[in-house]
Amino acid sequence: MSPKNPPALAAWVLKHVVAGRPNEALAGDLLEEFRSGRSSVWYWRQVLIVMALQWSRELNTHWAALLFAALWTLPEPPFRIFLVARLAESPFVSQRWHLRWPYSTMADLAFFNGCSLLYLWSGLALCFVLSSLATRAMRLGRLMRGLWVSMLVYIATFAGLIPLATMLPPQGFVLQPVVAGHTRVVIVSTYSFLPIFLALLAAIWSLFPRGENTTLSVAD
């Protein structure tokens, strides 16, 4: 008879979603308890508690990253409204966008998200320089990883917010229309704030090594 296995999704969450490196001893303890007669509900509860504890610890450890990401994201709406909007209205940019739909919308999205990514990456670069000066070690590999992480998180969050933005009324500053043409792109600062904040936080997080001398996150 094969041994009883815990819920596959819970085991996957424990391995991949819990912050820090996997703790094999803890995973083994949970499996041992589960095989001695604990229920699937018990196992799920344990996994969720481990996840909550680990993420709160990570946030506590990376409070500086959280603060920097929040401070850098705050001036983004004025940057978008004053600088990017003026740039979009300039003849140089607007004349290039006499495109038909859907290319016009794609060009708008690429332009505005490109500007957001540049803003985000300038914050990441500043953080990288400051951390390199503080630690006296410049690790360009980590910066490259941060750039990739920020881009992926930004795109995923932005795409995830599109259905929400179409269902809910616009919040915050609204800027429309952006460029000449048939398509009107509505840029809502509330919805643009979140992708930048999360992407910058994830990227800064990836710049710094995780706690290596801890029993809760040690890969045994």
Partner: peptide, 24 residues
């Protein structure tokens, strides 16, 4: 180790203890 520690704590305290909080 994790399992006997949490079992002993459960027995002495009279209510359940999460292994994650024991490790923390």
């Amino acid at each position: 180790y994790g399992v006997p520690i949490s079992r002993e704590l459960e027995q002495q305290r009279g209510h359940s203890v999460s292994i994650g909080s024991v490790y923390a």
